[in-house]
């Protein structure tokens, strides 16, 4: 029974990890080796210099990395702050119309993004913010993702009622109670939201595609896309570049897995 379970585990892991293995293995093949099933077999002579070549061909990797990091960090801070604040207000404070507003949060989840993409672009254009990072970051600081607001609300609902009273006894305002008492308690949730935001922003292609114009302001995914030219891209280099962009995601996830699960656990237990 244990052996069977171990076998199943290995099979499951292999099945899900296969494509990543493919990216890695293909990135180490000789240029022009082609990409059939053959790319799945590890090469006899790994071409590590594919990586150096790919980064060089991208033209300004360090700069794109810095751009991506800037956007990602700002987005994470924005999401964590705004969503936790809104989640706190919806969970712990009472005011008229609260439920109606919360329905608005949920309804926003169902609006396909493509609907508002064009009007939103026109808005940012009117504000003169095209070709800056504002359109990528501002909607996280103002607004936030409905899903995260929902998660924070669930989390704050799970905390004991005595906390509010204790804060009120100490003379805290709603803002102070949030900042001093509730936010520090929300650490697992913050980690969860930060991780998901990291992955989404790091991998985002559409928003940078639409809003970033200048070559030097490109993010990594955008640089990868313009690297992917019709005629002279070798697939091996493309895979090497993809692997470089993927690596931090895998690493961050692996390191943050514990906190991540804890955050989800609290939200899940309250449904």
């Amino acid at each position: 029974m244990r052996i069977l379970r171990a076998l199943v585990l290995v099979a499951v892991a292999a099945l899900f990890a296969l494509p990543l293995w493919f990216v890695l293995s293909a990135s180490l093949h000789k240029e022009g080796a082609g990409l059939g099933l053959g790319a799945l077999a590890p090469p006899a002579d790994p071409q590590w210099h594919n990586y150096a070549l790919a980064l060089e061909r991208m033209g300004g990797f360090a700069r794109f990395l810095a751009n991506t990091l800037l956007v990602t960090v700002l987005s994470i801070l924005g999401q964590c702050f705004t969503c936790s604040l809104a989640g706190y207000a919806f969970a712990r404070l009472s005011f008229r119309g609260r439920d109606a507003l919360f329905v608005c949060v949920l309804a926003a989840m169902m609006l396909p993004d493509q609907t508002s993409a064009l009007p939103r672009f026109l808005l940012f254009r009117t504000l003169g913010l095209v070709d800056s990072y504002w359109p990528l970051v501002l909607p996280t600081v103002l607004g936030g993702a409905p899903f995260f607001i929902f998660l924070f609300r669930q989390y704050f609902l799970s905390l004991p009622a005595e906390l509010d009273e204790a804060a009120r006894m100490d003379g805290c305002s709603a803002w102070q109670a949030y900042w001093r008492v509730f936010l520090p308690l929300a650490r697992p949730m913050l980690a969860t939201v930060a991780l998901i935001t990291f992955l989404a922003t790091w991998n985002d292609f559409w928003a940078p595609l639409v809003y970033v114009l200048s070559p030097e302001k490109r993010t990594l995914t955008l640089a990868l896309a313009s690297f992917q030219r019709t005629f002279d891209t070798s697939v091996e280099l493309l895979m090497a570049a993809s692997a470089v962009i993927l690596a931090p995601c895998v690493l961050v996830y692996f390191l943050a897995q514990r906190l991540f699960l804890r955050g989800i656990r609290v939200a899940a237990s309250k449904g």
């Binding site: 706190y88 609907t115 009007p119 607004g143």
Partner: peptide, 25 residues
């Protein structure tokens, strides 16, 4: 009022970037 003040960042973004564009649509 204090509670609603905490919702200002969410609400302003909701109106500007979601509800507004959706109404334009």
């Amino acid at each position: 009022r204090a509670a609603l003040a905490l919702l200002v960042p969410w609400a302003s973004g909701f109106v500007l970037f979601l509800l507004g564009p959706a109404l334009v649509a």
